[in-house]
Nucleic acid binder design. Structure first.
Lengths: 152, 152
DNA sequence: GATGAAACGTTGTGGTT
DNA sequence: AACCACAACGTTTCATC
């Protein structure tokens, strides 16, 4: 399943290039790093099979697709309400990221909205599951930064 | 710059497919939605030019690239320390996402680490900028969900 | 990994509605 | 303005070494 392959310097270069532009051709990548296209293709396939390369995703503007408002929402679930919440949250299109965390709250989410009415509706849906805290996102300082070779 | 183009039903289908697999060929996308490859290519180019399609990014496993620990870290900056922090944070490879937010804290970050020693080092770098709060991520409930057509 | 060849995809031109 | 058809060119993928 997850064969234990090593990420050498060339594979890190491939990962960096694909994180920057997932539609880059294997031929071009090969030219950048001194390999032929089939060699790049094989390395990519092995990293996909190993679970290192999880997928390729287009990034879409939130604001230009009608979601001008973003919030970080945490949930402190009531007794017995965490499991039902976890089932429910997968049905919410607004939730971009959702993590279970340690600490006073159980859940932190990154959520996008059309406007404050949409946000209000969303919070109303959560009140039966626990106490929420909402922080509006004012600006993006860093968005989906690429993973780099681990420090030595 | 940002021509005001409309995202019709076909463009939403293209956005959905590219969010799921950014390396999907225009020819295949065309077959799925009943368009020729050049027509898909033109629509994609227009959405790129309009700033709707921001880019294509490979998604890489955090754990299999040596980052077994993830945390949500918030910062309540000391007087005059927010601007210097914003400059500094861009130099941190560990920070995947960083947002400026409303509320008691000024900043929330999603950060990946090799281990708890690496986390400790990171927090030490922040203490001069403000008070931090750290929540360890136990599991991913939703990761980078695609944006869907806004609700009617 | 490289090479070479066949299949496939992309992209430009021209034409249709 | 959006799309299709066609063709030239580049890319992917498979075989073989």
């Amino acid at each position: 399943m997850e064969s234990n392959i090593k990420i050498d310097a060339l594979n890190w270069k491939i990962l960096n290039l694909l994180q920057q532009n997932a539609r880059e051709s294997f031929a071009n990548i090969g030219r950048s790093i001194g390999l032929t296209a089939p060699a790049v293709g094989e390395r990519v396939k092995k990293m996909e099979d190993a679970g290192i390369l999880l997928g390729y995703n287009a990034t879409v503007s939130h604001s230009l697709t009608g979601h001008q408002l973003k919030a970080i929402i945490t949930l402190r679930a009531f007794m017995g309400k965490l499991k039902p919440f976890l089932v429910l949250v997968s049905t919410f299109d607004e939730v971009i990221n959702c993590y279970r965390i340690t600490g006073n709250e159980n859940i932190v989410m990154e959520v996008v909205f059309k406007d404050q009415f949409h946000l209000e509706q969303f919070i109303d849906k959560l009140i039966q599951y626990g106490e929420t805290r909402t922080n509006i996102v004012l600006s993006n300082v860093i968005s989906n930064a690429p993973i780099r070779s681990e420090p030595a």
